[in-house]
Computed example of a mutant assay.
Amino acid sequence: MAERYSSFERGGRRWLWQRITAAFLVVVLAFHFFLLHFVNHADEVTFAASSLRMQDLTYYSLMVLFLVTATFHGVNGVYNALINQGLTGSRKRIVKYALVAASVVLIVQGVRTANAWAGFPTF
């Protein structure tokens, strides 16, 4: 009989959050494709129109939440794939902190970009 193997700890929450973020991303991606490929066609999407959309607080909040969710989902998936490949010890710790640092940089730059598009002050 095959043995069950998963890099997610039994009773851990990362497994659950991976599934929740996946479901959220599917819904937001469907919204994105509908809005930017069916309502507005590719040749109608401009920087000015994107800036106008980002000025709507609901849209802005959804895009920032999309950024944070996609970052977590991707980094968590990469980290667990590396653990599944046998990453342990100090290398595991180094990779974990490198991924956390990359996530922080990505989120900070993404929020700065969203703020610039929305006309908010950047930090």
Rank of each mutant, 00 (worst) to 15 (best):
F24T: 10
G12Y: 02
K92P: 00
K96W: 09
A114K: 00
F120V: 03
L62M: 06
Y5L: 11
V28H: 07
K92L: 08
D56N: 07
F33T: 14
R10T: 14
I20H: 04
A98V: 09
A42V: 09
N115F: 03
L16K: 08
M1C: 11
V95G: 04
S103F: 03
N84M: 15
A30S: 13
T58E: 05
S51W: 01
W17D: 00
S6P: 04
R4Y: 09
F38V: 12
V39F: 01
N84A: 15
H37S: 13
A23E: 00
L67W: 00
G86W: 14
A23N: 05
A101P: 07
T58V: 06
L36K: 09
F66L: 15
N80M: 01
G12K: 09
R53P: 02
W117P: 08
G119A: 12
T122N: 10
G74A: 06
Q85N: 12
Y60G: 05
A49T: 13
A30K: 05
L67Y: 03
G110E: 07
L82N: 01
A49V: 10
S50N: 15
L29T: 12
D43S: 13
Q18R: 11
L52H: 06
R4H: 10
V78K: 00
N40G: 12
E9P: 13
T21W: 09
A70T: 08
K96C: 05
F34P: 10
A48Q: 05
L35Q: 12
E3G: 01
R112E: 10
A116T: 14
N80C: 01
A30H: 00
L62R: 01
Y97A: 00
A30T: 13
G11P: 02
L29K: 07
R4P: 13
N84W: 11
L16I: 11
V95E: 00
V28I: 13
R14E: 13
S51P: 02
V68S: 03
D56L: 06
Q55K: 14
F8M: 10
L87A: 02
G74W: 01
R93L: 11
V100H: 07
A2K: 10
V26D: 01
M54K: 01
N40L: 15
T113V: 06
Y60C: 07
L25V: 00
